[in-house]
Design a protein around this nucleic acid. Structure first.
Lengths: 117, 117
DNA sequence: TCGATAGTCCGACGTTCATCGGACTATCAT
DNA sequence: ATGATAGTCCGATGAACGTCGGACTATCGA
């Protein structure tokens, strides 16, 4: 059918509050860290999140709509990449500080086991 | 005269996600920026937020419980200060990047609107 | 003591959020 | 075509959030 094109906010419309909100979730932070460390575009399935498939889709959309990542269809997959250049220009140092931050072990213990489909 | 003491999370318990969430609100971001630029402790009333008094209290509490600010009673006032040392040690560069970020660039400079991955 | 000042606490209300299962669509390889 | 793979869309649900007014407490100065 139609080429499935995904909406991305132009760099000028990326808002700090939205970026911070997007980064303020453990699953999304994990995605961003993975993308930052891998340095390339990866499909959603490359990152094993502890949530269901629909929730995963939701988190990627939040990141894309906040301007944190790009998403491009490629075959049945969808490649996700960090918008590092845009973010580094708009908010210098932010991405690095978030990615490099050493996170303390969470007091909250039992991690929900991933639902079995 | 009960010494009204406020609970602050020890530095080891400050979690990045909570800090990001605390910073992801316009009112709270304004508070943090004010504190960062003033470089000293100021009472709540020093920052004129566009919300009610009870909402203001709420925002300061969120910041304190996330480990972003300190709050100390002094007379009828309550002095708020940035936990810059703790934050800079735990998440180097984060505070500076958030405080120095230029927010809301206008659309009149709209050139290329394609994301740069 | 009294008033003014500074902030807290307490419901309440509507919104947004993260999460899920399940049905669905799109693409590729065979 | 068929099946496998990858992700989307659609309600729904319960929790968290931002917001408010208003009554309340604590402190200070006159």
């Amino acid at each position: 059918m139609t080429a499935r094109v995904l909406e991305h906010p132009p760099a000028e419309e990326i808002r700090l509050e939205e970026v911070l909100h997007a980064l303020a979730d453990p699953a999304r932070l994990e995605i961003v860290r993975f993308l930052a460390s891998s340095g390339r575009e990866v499909p959603c399935s490359a990152i094993d999140l502890a949530v269901s498939k629909s929730t995963t889709t939701h988190h990627y959309r939040v990141l894309r709509e906040a301007g944190v990542i790009t998403q491009v269809y490629r075959g049945t997959a969808k490649l996700n990449g960090l918008r590092r250049a845009d973010l580094d220009r708009l908010f210098p140092g932010l991405l690095d500080s978030v990615v490099n931050a050493v996170t303390a072990p969470r007091a909250d213990t039992a991690r929900a086991s991933r639902p079995t489909p």
